[in-house]
Design a protein around this nucleic acid. Structure first.
Length: 215
DNA sequence: ATTATGATCGTCT
DNA sequence: GACGATCATAATG
């Protein structure tokens, strides 16, 4: 089994609106579990009222102003641990929120933990994605570029990454897939910015998932 | 099928 | 002291 090298810090040291779509189709790994990212949101710095970085480097948001390629983990609604990757140069305060994905490694163990969920729902939504990966507060301010417990790397061809990837999931891969964008979800400020990105046709999307039409 | 509500706690006002 | 970058469950059409 070949595991690709992580994306280098330079990959994340770019405008957040450039990094966000580039993360679609990439893989996040933590221990035995890996998730192929299908939906993300971009969050700005001091200029984005919806961002945790909007009020400057507070104790919580200070990580966002740190080096690109570091994880920013926060607790949502007192319950869910959500995962971001810091982007741009030090001091900018931007990050990409990982909102949904497809479990491509360690799926059997994950399925055993949540047997009532369909495979496509296991990492659908930022809270579930974090839960499946075992995201914890201790992972904030650690690099995802290698050397840490959390790693982001290009997705290998279907089947080369452990169990769980059936032929039906052997999608064309990030390169050939279409990307759409739209408004971010769950925020009350700057709702007009189309800073949410997703892979067209993925069954694991957290919102606006195409319901099959009745006839 | 959609809509309502409770859970639960760190962060910032 | 109010409010979330959410989700599971229950109630209702």
């Amino acid at each position: 089994m070949v595991v690709p090298a992580p994306y280098p810090a330079a990959f994340f040291d770019r405008p957040v609106l450039a990094v966000a779509p580039d993360l679609l189709g990439a893989t996040v790994r933590h221990g035995p579990v890996a998730v192929r990212i299908t939906e993300v949101e971009a969050y700005g710095g001091l200029d984005d009222p919806a961002s945790h970085a909007f009020r400057g480097p507070t104790p919580r948001a200070a990580v966002m102003f740190g080096p690109p390629g570091w994880a920013y983990v926060y607790l949502s609604y007192g319950i869910h641990w959500c995962l971001n990757i810091v982007c741009g140069p030090v001091g900018e305060g931007t990050a990409v929120l990982l909102r949904a994905g497809e479990v491509i490694a360690g799926r059997e163990a994950v399925q055993a933990c949540w047997p009532k969920l369909a495979a496509r729902d296991l990492a659908r939504g930022p809270g579930r994605l974090g839960r499946v990966l075992g995201i914890a507060a201790s992972l904030t301010a650690t690099p995802v570029t290698g050397g840490g417990p959390l790693v982001v790397h290009p997705s290998p061809p279907a089947g080369e990454l452990g169990d769980g990837r059936g032929p039906a999931a052997a999608v064309p891969g990030a390169a050939g897939e279409r990307i759409e964008r739209g408004p971010r979800v769950g925020i009350t400020a700057a709702t007009e910015r189309p800073w949410r990105f997703w892979l067209v046709g993925e069954p694991s999307l957290s919102a606006a998932r195409p319901r099959h039409r009745r006839r």
